[in-house]
Design a binder for these strands. Structure first.
Length: 814
DNA sequence: GAGGGGCGCGCC
DNA sequence: AAACGGCGCGCCCCTC
């Protein structure tokens, strides 16, 4: 892929924009009404309003001109609109569109500005104020829209001033343009002109505004001397940063937009069942929680009551010196009684006992009393423990069920947000847009699961409410242990070697290897015991491997033993224990055991967790935490450092770099990231690398899905043939290390295998030192089952369903 | 009534 | 010296 010809954008750049019918559910690429174009003519920006057919011709001409760079704001949207218009006319525009992206001839000012902000370390913030980006006209929170970019790059807040017609062009569809109101004609032209101007300024072909870059008493960019009355804003012709990565990111945004436009469909009956089961639980618990005062009669939480209960349970006593125990103080602004911030509305003396508190802030000088589930459970107070479990399904009811509802009547579309700080991708929500597609729970609570089973039906969670159209299957391919490999690659590139990488290249199980070191066993013994279920130490070996696994993943980002212990206690699997304190809710009742993973029991075989608790570790206060667990975590971390000797220098490299340089160049993509602290930087190195790999794989998968491509990789089982993806499969979305889409059910095997080939190939390109370890895994399924695994039937991949608990098809086993 | 900060929690 | 990260969203609470 070559980079866009940014130094000659004024000669070859055309800003193009479309105005369409409103975006409607299921119609993400609505019909075109009118368009506009802006180019540099005789040194000035000339904008033109284009009638519908002229707009389409303008796009086609620009796409076919190998010199031309198409410039837009969220250009993927316009590109799809045009592709759909052309398809209606019997013309397949996809080859030309993909070619333009591959040649780096598409420029998106929004992506460019986000990339610049990543380099400068202020993504999503206005660098002048360090506050969240806001639309200069509407004042609403936003991302890098055209009007925000115009403000940030040109220092003008007048973009979109004629936006009265923006949402209403359908009304004008059958009115001759000559009869349109003046502002309906100027708005699209202004958009195109602003877009072009922003692009030229970003490329340094026109002055732009930005922050000063002080060196030796002067601004490197504008030359202004550094004095106390120097202008706040720097005006210069310095180019925006990270433009060398623009072409790839714009291409990615196009591939993601294509998938997002198809969207996802949900099964109404399944959502009904899920919601009813969750609601039943909430209603059953409601009277008790109202009686305890945690909830008000209307079901809302009374935070002051909960926080006071927590503070009491953790031993606080005495009276708050500010509110005198009333929990309320008069507001300095309005005089209304508001919660006392000194005591976090507990009315108690917070210094009288080590109650878990959030970090202090200006608003809460002592922090607020924490009320998370883990804190409630550990309090030892039965009412609070009950409340912790009663809350478990609230998120299902309040967040996920309403989101799933969006897809019942017609597919719910997605709105990708690319790139993020690390290079990953997120999805934004909104009316009839699913913003939580990457965040849907993989499993529901034991109580909810029991309730769902009691009611019959086949829904067992949130994700399986999502279904493909009849005749289609979902494919889901993910990189196997992707971050272990990219971490190893990062280590080779930063410090010159990686023992982890060598192990992965040999096909060794890195988690078992670390577990063996922790046990003091040779790897051979570890492997044998893990395999032998009858071995007396089998269970112990499995526990060690599990803890080693979380260690391998956590410590790469610089995690310490305290946070590791707390994270496992909060998020790990429960620890059943015969003499435990009955914290584990099995769906019916509390049974003996601890909530969350308890390292002291699993690794050291302790007879109880929390015999000694610390409330301070390394001079930092913390929630009461089992000392024995922290000791185990410390040993795991030490084993980890011994096992992978590259880890220490790797972390030291980032520690030093974060403190002295303050920015880092990502491997492979060469994207600059600024402003990351040590942990963020250590993480970003391998997280971003995997994201870049996955995005390139996504682009190639999309290409083969929409354009006839003959597979030219001799190692491919499809060498010399038309890609099996073409015409029978579509990507839908992307979850960091997972490519998710649909395929005709009869070709599911070839589709998921080809997607896998592409993923592995791209993985190897980015991690050449670990090619043998670069792997991915395909899965097919008739619903989005999180538990799905590859199932093979007569040598071909088959659809997984919950009745499968082995990696072979049930038919084949029979 | 809108919006913004703080928090907690879902994912990878 | 010591330190996992970045996301989106709902709720509560407060302000305007």
């Amino acid at each position: 892929m070559h980079a866009a010809r940014l130094d000659t954008l004024h000669l070859y750049g055309s800003a193009l924009d479309t105005e369409t019918h409103r975006i409607q559910p299921g119609v993400p690429a609505p019909p075109l009404v009118v368009g506009s174009c802006a180019e540099v003519v005789d040194g000035a920006i000339a904008g033109t309003l284009l009638e519908r057919e002229t707009t389409i011709r303008a796009f086609v001409m620009a796409l076919d001109d190998p010199q031309r760079v198409i410039i837009g704001a969220n250009i993927a949207y316009d590109m799809l609109v045009i592709a759909v218009e052309l398809a209606r006319r019997g013309i397949d525009a996809m080859p030309a569109i993909f070619a333009a992206y591959q040649q780096g001839r598409v420029y998106d000012i929004q992506v460019a500005e986000a990339l610049h902000a990543i380099a400068e370390g202020h993504l999503g913030k206005d660098p002048r104020t360090s506050k969240q980006l806001k639309d200069p006209i509407t004042g609403k929170m936003g991302r890098y829209s055209l009007s925000i970019c115009t403000d940030l790059v040109l220092g003008r807040i007048d973009a979109k001033r004629n936006d009265r017609w923006r949402q209403s062009y359908a009304l004008l569809e059958h009115v001759p343009i000559a009869e349109w109101p003046e502002d309906a004609r100027t708005y699209p032209v202004d958009d195109a002109r602003n877009t072009l101007e922003v692009a030229l300024a970003q490329c340094g072909l026109m002055p732009n505004v930005g922050l000063h870059r002080w060196r030796d008493g002067r601004c490197l960019q504008c030359g202004t001397p550094m004095t106390h009355d120097a202008p706040v804003v720097c005006v210069s012709r310095w180019r925006r940063r990270n433009l060398h990565t623009l072409a790839d990111e714009v291409y990615t945004s196009w591939a993601l937009h294509l998938g997002a436009s198809w969207g996802l469909r949900t099964d109404a009956a399944s959502v009904d069942a899920l919601e009813a089961a969750a609601r039943a639980g909430r209603e059953a618990n409601m009277p008790d929680l109202v009686r305890l005062g945690y909830l008000r009669a209307d079901g809302s939480e009374n935070g002051a009551v909960v926080k006071r209960a927590v503070a009491l349970a953790y031993g606080c006593s005495g009276v708050c010196g500010v509110c005198g125990g009333t929990q309320k103080v008069p507001s300095p602004k309005s005089g209304n009684p508001i919660n006392c911030s000194e005591c976090s509305a507990t009315g108690l003396n917070l210094d009288s006992a080590p109650v878990p508190r959030t970090d202090p802030s200006t608003k809460f000088p002592k922090g607020q009393v924490q009320t998370g589930r883990d804190i409630l459970t550990e309090s030892g107070d039965e009412d609070l423990m009950f409340y912790g479990y009663a809350q478990e399904d609230d998120k299902i009811l309040d967040t996920y069920c309403p989101d799933l509802r969006k897809g019942c009547a017609q597919p719910v579309n997605l709105r990708p947000n690319n790139p993020l700080e690390t290079g990953r991708v997120s999805y934004t929500g909104g009316e009839l847009v699913l913003g939580t597609v990457q965040l849907l729970p993989r499993q529901v609570s034991a109580r909810l699961l029991a309730e769902l089973k009691r009611r019959g039906g086949h829904v067992i969670g949130v994700r399986d409410c999502i279904v493909p159209d009849p005749g289609w299957l979902f494919y889901s391919n993910d990189f196997s242990g992707g971050e272990l490999v990219t971490f190893a690659e990062s280590c080779v590139l930063r410090v010159g070697f990686s023992e982890l990488g060598k192990a992965l290249n040999l096909g060794l199980d890195a988690h078992a290897a670390l577990g063996a070191t922790m046990l003091g066993w040779p790897m051979e013994k570890m492997a044998a015991v893990l395999k032998d279920k009858a071995h007396p130490e089998h269970k112990r070996a499995k526990n060690f491997r599990q803890c080693a696994k979380w260690g391998n993943f956590g410590f790469m980002g610089g995690m310490g033993e305290l946070k590791f212990t707390l994270t496992q206690r909060r998020q790990g699997a429960d620890t059943p224990h015969p003499s435990g304190p009955s914290q584990v809710w099995d769906g019916e009742a509390f049974v003996a055991g601890y909530r969350g993973m308890r390292l002291c029991i699993l690794v050291d075989g302790a007879d109880a967790c929390g015999k000694v608790k610390v409330t301070e570790y390394k001079r930092q206060s913390c929630p009461p935490t089992c000392k024995a667990c922290i000791d185990v975590a410390k040993r795991i971390r030490e084993s980890w450092l011994r096992q992978w000797p590259e880890a220490k220098p790797y972390l030291e490299w980032h520690s030093n770099n974060a403190d002295t340089i303050g920015e880092v160049v990502q491997h492979y993509s060469n994207r600059i990231r600024g402003g990351a602290r040590f942990c963020a930087e250590s993480n970003g190195d391998f997280q971003g690398l995997l994201a870049d790999v996955a995005k390139r794989a996504q682009c190639r998968v999309s290409l083969e899905q929409y354009v006839r491509v003959i597979v030219d990789d001799p190692t491919s089982r499809y060498y010399g043939q038309l890609s099996p993806l073409y015409g029978v499969s579509r990507s839908i979305f992307f979850a960091h290390d997972e490519l998710f889409g649909v395929t005709h059910e009869d070709v599911g095997h070839d589709v998921s295998c080809r997607v896998n080939e592409i993923m592995v190939e791209e993985f190897r390109k980015a991690c050449p030192n670990h090619a043998p370890a670069c792997k991915a895994e395909p899965t097919l399924m008739g619903r989005w089952w999180k538990a799905a695994e590859p199932v093979w039937h007569r040598g071909r991949l088959a659809a997984w369903s919950p009745s499968h608990n082995q990696k072979t098809c049930q038919e084949c086993r029979a």
